[in-house]
Design a protein around this nucleic acid. Structure first.
Lengths: 234, 234
DNA sequence: CTCACAGTGTCGCATGGGCGACAGCTTGGT
DNA sequence: ACCAAGCTGTCGCCCATGCGACACTGTGAG
């Protein structure tokens, strides 16, 4: 289980000795599907490394709307964004499948970093990369209409979770329409109807197991079309 | 000039020796108002510390829409988000007033971090905090209508750049309506008319020098109202 | 097997807010 | 002092999307 991690794995980048030391300062824990690892307003000074399972990181608006910021796959580190003053983070982490975690108290982790400055560079790189991704998403959401938002969502997903096979790209991540809607800030029905029309046009296929982009090249071209073209073509 | 930095200053948190060492690995440079420090697709391996002046960090959509992600004030460090592979960052940094910078090659900075691991913790904290802010913005933009987006923008701005004086909060940052629109993904006219109506209601005052929130408490309450209430009240 | 519930497909309506247009204003350059 | 260029205020039209409603399907628990 813990042997094959994703390309974004933090663990993969550690030397065996570093990884061993890290395990020494944390403890392992198991969370059942659907349970929270942390909540927005909890006082909580831990960091987490996901060993197995899948986590979603979300925010909640005043009015109950959920925004999914990203998914963590095995090997990734998360929970870095505790605010030192309030000791809160404004985020929720929820296990979307049973999950095995390494939990590390923040103060111990800080010590660990001081002793292993190389790791600091990894963390900085990782945070910088998330910052870029999040910024992309923000740009996408403020400046594009529903169609392009959705197309770019699929592109991000396939970049992170995609698997190519015979010219098609499979996204092995089962997401409900509601969840996708929550990632791009549109309503569920809009996602449903976009998927419906894209299926009709043979651009994507969608089943219980995930979504498949049938022609990545054509799909790429779609994302470059102006919004109003898509509205009428689709 | 370089003596009084903002509360978010990176420089302020350095020991004199650390700051001295940092200056040793960088060189100073001056950018005129309106010029780019870096562009999205430039190969560029530098980090920057802003000594004096003001910088805006933006992204550009395919179709020419600009999104302002944040402003840097003196003392802050920026440009951390270079992608190691592409050596690009997808971001623009523009001097919005004449700016004095310390420019540091990334590889030297990495060495510096390895030698001063304490700094790494500062950087991590800083990035985590930006990540939180950006996530907030994203939530705000996906789940709220124009009014609340704008109100929360003013709240963020006053948190970062505000100055309290006699129960009122002054935001000493001159922004055009267009710029504010670019920060929350609405069009210029919408911002203009919201400002107009809020002025009429005596909630804010806006002049050439910035915006003033006349009653922060009342303003806070506004942000908790549902969107449709605001649409009719304002 | 069957019932309950979660997820999906699809209407139709109401409306928020984008966008063009254009008339004042400022402001800075010469 | 004057002009050009950029910023602001304000209309009005119109369309993409949100939202309620409801029927249908698939799946997991008992």
């Amino acid at each position: 289980m813990e042997s094959s991690f994703t390309p974004f794995s933090f663990i993969n980048k550690l030397e065996p000795a570093e990884w061993h030391a890290l395990q020494g300062i944390g403890h392992r824990d198991i969370y059942k599907k659907g349970s929270y690892i942390f909540r927005a307003n909890e006082l909580n000074d831990s960091l987490y490394v996901l060993l197995d399972g899948r986590i979603k990181i979300t925010r909640l608006s005043q009015h109950g709307r959920e925004l999914i910021q990203w998914f963590c796959l095995p090997g990734e580190i998360f929970g870095l964004s505790v605010d030192d003053n309030s000791r809160q983070r404004g985020l929720y982490a929820t296990a979307i499948s049973d999950a095995k975690l390494l939990c590390i108290p923040k103060c111990d982790f800080d010590q660990y970093i001081l002793q292993h400055p190389r790791i600091a560079l990894l963390i900085i790189k990782q945070l910088a990369s998330r910052l870029r991704t999040l910024g992309d998403t923000l740009l996408n959401i403020t400046s594009d209409g529903a169609h392009i938002r959705f197309i770019k969502l699929l592109q991000r997903l396939s970049k992170f979770y995609g698997r190519e096979h015979g010219g098609e790209v499979y996204i092995d991540l089962y997401l409900t329409h509601q969840e996708m809607a929550d990632m791009i800030g549109v309503c569920r029905q809009t996602v449903s109807s976009m998927i419906g029309r894209m299926k009709k046009h043979g651009i994507i296929a969608s089943t219980r197991d995930g979504i498949c982009i049938q022609s990545p090249v054509e799909f790429q071209q779609l994302s470059e079309q102006p919004d109003n073209y898509l509205q009428h073509y689709l």
